[in-house]
Design a protein around this nucleic acid. Sequence first.
DNA 1: TCGAACCTTGACGTTCACGTCAAGGTTAGG
DNA 2: CCTAACCTTGACGTGAACGTCAAGGTTCGA
Lengths: 176, 176
Amino acid sequence: MTTRPTTTAAPATGSAPQPRPLRIQEVAAEVGLTTRSVRYYEEVGLLAPARSGGDYRLYDAEDLERLRFIKALRDDAGFSLAEIGQLVEDEAARARNKARFKATDDPAERRAIALDGIARVDRQIETLRAKMARLRTMIGEARARREKLASRVEMIDGGEVRTHVHVDRRPPTSNA
Amino acid sequence: MTTRPTTTAAPATGSAPQPRPLRIQEVAAEVGLTTRSVRYYEEVGLLAPARSGGDYRLYDAEDLERLRFIKALRDDAGFSLAEIGQLVEDEAARARNKARFKATDDPAERRAIALDGIARVDRQIETLRAKMARLRTMIGEARARREKLASRVEMIDGGEVRTHVHVDRRPPTSNA
DNA sequence: TCGAACCTTGACGTTCACGTCAAGGTTAGG
DNA sequence: CCTAACCTTGACGTGAACGTCAAGGTTCGA
């Protein structure tokens, strides 16, 4: 782990705390991906990091955020990269809007930009919610099965029998 | 679409309404899968339909249920077939238990079988819940972003400006 | 009994999402 | 300026999850 001794140790230029762009191995480690995956995601258009003079990829904070988002979508939600592409597109637009927002003083324009952002986030939420709703249905079905089984046990226990077998009777952390 | 005119049109034998086993194309259409997928799922051990004399696969109601379960896990939850295998194994055990349950009169034994079933269902629920929790987190993050945007708009609107642009201000179906 | 429509088991092809070299350029401490 | 450690672009390999023939057996109404 010879992480080259961090040259350019924050010149403290004042306002913009640009924390120095990372190279591919660093982001990969940070986010929990392989360099191959990161490059692949770029290949399929999920992100476009800056380049150094010698054509090294340089990732800024925003890229980091993006990669974390992608990983979450992939691992946690089980989306395909194609589906992720849709969601990420909205993320990208969000970033562009951020810049546009800062670039103008016109309140009407700012308002419009923010509203566009809201619309995009709403779309993301809808996609996620749809998936969650289906998961919820499945959980509901499982719970129904569980209840049926539980009532059987109740019935038997009600009509005596009493074995010494003890088991946890609660449903798993009554969440969801 | 020449669905062969349903021979063996329910002999009405009385108690067991065995609705006649289906052949692979029929189940595929019914469940919404390709025959290839159905065969593949059998290949990887996700189910084991009965066979006719001439070695045709014959699917009963239970197999149908199983396939629907698999499809839901795959499409709705985004699980891999490997993960599905785990969940389905519990389903299979459930089926076996059902038979064992009916086969005995001993209440103690019946109770034990039911408890085993509960444990299995609980495991399924846990798996699903874990995935859902992560989805929920992502939705929460998206919502946070939305709120931030919304407050920006509020701010602008508060300090006048009033454009004629109208947009839906509610979060998408406040569910989840 | 015959034939259309179905089924079977191979076996090879394909797409996705990367893994894994290979051959060479880049960076930066010493 | 040298060199270890990093990076680059190919390019080929791989496992999962099927798609897609091919060659032949099975069903069943006519």
